[in-house]
Write a protein that binds this DNA or RNA. Structure first.
Lengths: 215, 215
DNA sequence: CGAGTACTGTAATATACATTACGTTTTTTG
DNA sequence: CAAAAAACGTAATGTATATTACAGTACTCG
């Protein structure tokens, strides 16, 4: 009899031997591929096992059920993606800092993995949809926005920028440099990669012209 | 033997009697509800018929198959939504015009129907995914951006605004006033409705400060 | 009115998959 | 080493649902 009743599919049944960890890692990686390609409902567990090697029973013992595996993939992937965004220089020069941050961000969110992740997270439609989506949002977009928000706030305190609401402004900056190619990319429609560069330049310019205290 | 082979599921088999049109309309409306709630793959045709009345056979005769019905729903819904966006005053005063346009746009894209439509369009994963998504994008977001783009271009020609690339700028304005609540709304996470108002105000301000020629 | 067509209802067909069960083999560990 | 636990492989179970078939009823239009 499985552990189906509990809403928290376990991953911590017994001890974790080296081989066990390896198995877990292999399944997780295969699942990442399949889920990101197919989405939650379309993904087939048998496919995942085919890719990962091993057996279905093992998958169930480790992750409980399909949703448990999916949640693990969401967490894993979202964190992996977030870690790509290492901005080293939060300097006092808003221009170069924003430009640098923007460039890294554009690189991140235009990557196939990030686009798939976003699409798949939106598409979930299981009973636990709300929980899954919260995990994604808070581990991903919200954390990124938080980084920028804190920078903007510090710049405002120093009197270098003048913004009513730094949380909103951070969101606006981020969305501004994603527009208009991100929407198309999410929908799988092609776009000229150069447009990303131009949107970044223009976005930084617009934002700073609007937000700088010194006119 | 059905008409499965052709990639264009017919809707124009025979003549359209009054009763036939009524049937078509009822099925379409029910399908709209079910597809927008469940997404393409999750939606169940039997459910649709239960809501619409009538019989499964009729559905298949009219729309060919599930995908044909879905495409019809996409077109119908996207057009319905677009028509809500009637901006009457494209005046020379960029401030009030953008504010007016923004207000209407925010109303539109924060509506449950528009959010569902967006989510469902992203989530499609059938073989014809590309075609479906193109229909949505071109009938919906692209058309809306086009409206604004043309306005911005005319303002630039008159020397009232100064923008490098009005297509990008239009996208940026639109995304700016949607940030940051739209992402949360798409994910089904709650947000303070007041934030929509504030994002609008701040977005217009930022955009105009950055784009106006007269400083 | 009556033939042809549209519509209805229900049942049959076929497939795809999540989830379990179970017997065997390998690995871990006391 | 030997018992316990983990991993394996395969088959069984059960469900959901797209799609088709068919037989009967209601419309429509010449």
């Amino acid at each position: 009899m499985g552990m189906r009743g509990t809403s928290v599919p376990c991953k911590a049944g017994g001890k974790l031997t080296a081989r066990g960890l390896e198995r877990q890692r292999l399944i997780l990686r295969a699942a990442q591929g399949v889920f990101l390609e197919q989405g939650f409902e379309q993904a087939c567990l048998a496919d995942i096992i085919t890719r990962a090697g091993g057996s279905l029973s093992t998958l169930y013992r480790i992750f409980g059920n399909k949703l448990g595996l999916f949640e693990a993939v969401i967490k894993e992937t979202t964190c992996e993606l977030f870690e790509r965004l290492e901005v080293e220089q939060w300097s006092e020069d808003s221009g170069t800092t924003l430009h640098d941050f923007g460039r890294k961000l554009v690189e991140l969110v235009s990557s196939p993995e990030a686009l798939s992740m976003y699409r798949v997270a939106l598409a979930v439609n299981s009973p636990d949809r709300e929980q899954v989506q919260r995990i994604f949002y808070e581990q991903g977009p919200a954390r990124i926005r938080g980084l920028l928000q804190r920078y903007l706030e510090s710049q405002c305190r120093k009197g270098l920028l003048d913004l009513d609401d730094c949380e909103i402004a951070a969101g606006q900056f981020i969305d501004m440099i994603k527009a208009p190619w991100h929407q198309q990319a999410l929908l799988g429609l092609p776009h000229d990669p150069q447009i990303r560069q131009r949107a970044l330049e223009q976005g930084v310019k617009l934002f700073l012209d609007g937000a700088r205290t010194v006119r």
